[in-house]
């Protein structure tokens, strides 16, 4: 379990599918992989490089 509250972009994924994306400033608890980025662009690059799949239309 991970619980953060930082000024970073947070990507939550289960190894392949993206569970959700959290903007800076919010508290997140999740049983899944949680990776932080300083900018949205860094996060988007990571998603492309690792071929992660959007599991939800709302992400």
């Amino acid at each position: 379990m991970k619980n953060i509250n930082l000024n970073t972009w947070v990507l939550v994924y289960d190894g392949k599918n993206i569970i959700t994306i959290v903007e800076p400033g919010y508290k997140t608890t999740t049983p899944f992989v949680l990776k932080e980025f300083n900018t949205k662009e860094e996060m988007q690059d990571y998603i492309i490089e690792n071929n992660l799949v959007k599991a939800d239309e709302q992400i």
Binding site: M1, Y26, K27, T29, T30
Partner: peptide, 23 residues
Amino acid sequence: PPTEASAAAITSLETKLVTVITN
């Protein structure tokens, strides 16, 4: 933001594979 009153529920939700995002 939630308080300690719901902390146990949040932990329980995580065991149900729920990602929780709050203020």
